[in-house]
Amino acid sequence: MKLWTSYHFPLKIYCRKKLGKRLIIDKNGNDEQERSLLSKLKQFFGAQFTSKMEGMLNDVTVAKEQQSKYEDYKRANPESNPSVVLNVQILTTGHWPSYKTVDINLPSEMVKCVGTFSQFYHSRTKHRKLNWIYSLGICNVFGMFEPKVIELIVTTYQIVTQLNLSEDDTVRVLHSLSCAKYKILNKEPSNRTISPHDVFEFNHKFTDKMKRIKVPLPPSDEKKKIMDDVNKDRRFAIDAALVRIMKSRKIMTHQNLVAECVEHLSRMFKPDNKMIKKRIEDLITREYLERDKDASAMD
């Protein structure tokens, strides 16, 4: 039971983070498809596994209704209406994964946006606190390049002039704007690494065949850590499946053992044959399994 619980905890975190990215950053998903997927996960893993993810989808539905009311508020209060179009999603803390929150120096236009929405929100809800997660923000800005004007879809971090970010986040932002596919900034020296003494300037001559482009940030180390945790717990799940199979079967050929292990785990994930072979070797080394000395050598 410990192996079962251990495996599903990081998987649940991974699913929540992926769902959060689709709902907030990518925004290309279909709510009905997401609910259908959650229904299947719920049938297999249980209601506790999906409860927070269902709450995330409900937050998105409520946010659409709230955005309409915010637009009504701005029309009723034209003196506080900012020049920048702002769309806000309120995330219930208990439902969503934890996201990094830092104070950054926003442009004055965005400061007014934040103030106006805060006034609207607190006029309707007195006992809740807003924590702005700027790391999830997406902005559409118009780049006035010499060849033509291009609409850029960037993160909030990529538009502020005085970032006040950590060194790691600053490196990611500068890399996305100068070293990746779209060279919005010129960098000297013109290599693909970011160093403290590099010099950056706006690339006035930048152009692209598209009129609207998305400039993504490179992935953070957090994604790698999640994948490492998932792979670690998959190894535990494979070990448990192999031991259970061998306790039941007593003797099996290597080929049949691998095939039954794949079938045993197929409803949770599709294990790689090479990983299963490594797990068999590890279990033999730790004396959980042993080779039949009368049988031919394992492939």
Rank of each mutant, 00 (worst) to 15 (best):
Q162T: 10
I276E: 02
C15H: 15
K129I: 08
M210E: 11
A295P: 07
D72G: 04
R192G: 09
L106K: 07
G137S: 12
F269K: 06
R249F: 15
V111W: 02
T170Q: 06
I251R: 11
L163K: 04
K250V: 06
P82G: 00
S51Q: 10
C15A: 15
S98K: 15
K148V: 10
V173T: 12
L91T: 07
R192K: 12
I25Q: 05
I213E: 01
T156G: 08
E109Q: 07
G94E: 13
L265D: 01
G137K: 08
D72W: 03
R212P: 09
K211N: 08
S36T: 10
T5I: 05
H264C: 08
R279I: 06
F120P: 05
P189T: 03
I138M: 08
V84Y: 04
D59P: 09
L3P: 06
D72S: 10
F236S: 08
G46R: 06
Q33P: 11
I25G: 01
R172W: 00
V199K: 13
E151M: 09
N81F: 14
Y73D: 08
K232W: 06
G55N: 12
D26Q: 10
R124Q: 14
L11P: 06
I284K: 02
I238M: 07
S6N: 14
P271Q: 00
D208Q: 11
G20W: 13
T253E: 12
K126Q: 15
E71V: 13
H127W: 14
S190N: 15
K293C: 10
D31W: 15
D228A: 13
L165Y: 04
C179E: 01
K247R: 13
K250H: 05
K40R: 06
S248H: 12
K293D: 08
D239Q: 12
K277C: 07
